[in-house]
Design a protein around this nucleic acid. Structure first.
Lengths: 118, 118
DNA sequence: TCCAATACTTACCAAGTAGTAAGTATTGAA
DNA sequence: TTCAATACTTACTACTTGGTAAGTATTGGA
């Protein structure tokens, strides 16, 4: 199965936000789509080195169900599918910014500690 | 084993932050400690209905290793152990606030949609 | 008729995450 | 000597997450 029981009863706001953002590549997809506005499946794949097609499509489907991502199909040959953020996706990305800044500082701190050791 | 390979090479800040905050109860522990300042193991357990002792201690240990939580042991009978946030834990909690606010709005939206259906 | 290009889809497997339930450690007081 | 209270610790299990690799679907053009 691809989908699991989500949208459950949440204990608090963090809980509700984590539910849609948990997944190895989801925050990166958010970032990638926010950066480029619109991306095709293949572009996303190339933009996220290491992601498998299975996980990419699985995450995109869940994010679509969660109202974060919009999927537009163009009936051409070869087929073209474009993904973009919805308004909710954009606001989620904004809400993640302070966390990203904290993580960046943490990375720098770890790197500095590693410097001292080596 | 309790610990897994963490503190890996991170792709971005979000990634680095997610690494320390991922875990079913971690954000709740953060919130609980921020709210009360200091909590004993048993108090935390009672404050997080449904958490198992195994997961609680496992998360606390990881958060201690990650420099988010401070553990203070009082050699009394019966034993007393107090947990509190470090400065990094406090700033992480601050960085999570916008995400929590977003999640709260999402919960309200979902509840409203559910109202319409029922 | 077959091929090329893109976007999936599926089966299978390994590793990680979390729950249950029972056991351990400490030590002062009765 | 045993007990009580707190804070863990361990073994076992089930479920979830993510990876690999191969296959499918679509359809215009050569």
């Amino acid at each position: 199965m691809t989908s699991n029981p989500r949208r459950g009863p949440y204990i608090c706001g963090i809980d509700a936000a984590m539910d849609v953002v948990t997944g190895k590549w989801k925050s990166l997809i958010l970032w990638e789509l926010d950066n480029h506005g619109t991306r095709r499946f293949g572009e996303l794949k190339r933009g996220l080195p290491g992601v498998s097609e299975k996980m990419l499509i699985q995450h995109l489907r869940e994010m679509e169900q969660d109202g974060l991502v919009h999927r537009e199909v163009y009936r051409e040959v070869p087929p073209r599918v474009e993904y973009s953020l919805t308004e909710h996706g954009t606001t989620l990305n904004d809400a993640l910014r302070p966390l990203g800044a904290w993580g960046t500082k943490r990375s720098q701190r770890l790197a500095a500690e590693h410097e001292l050791v080596s």
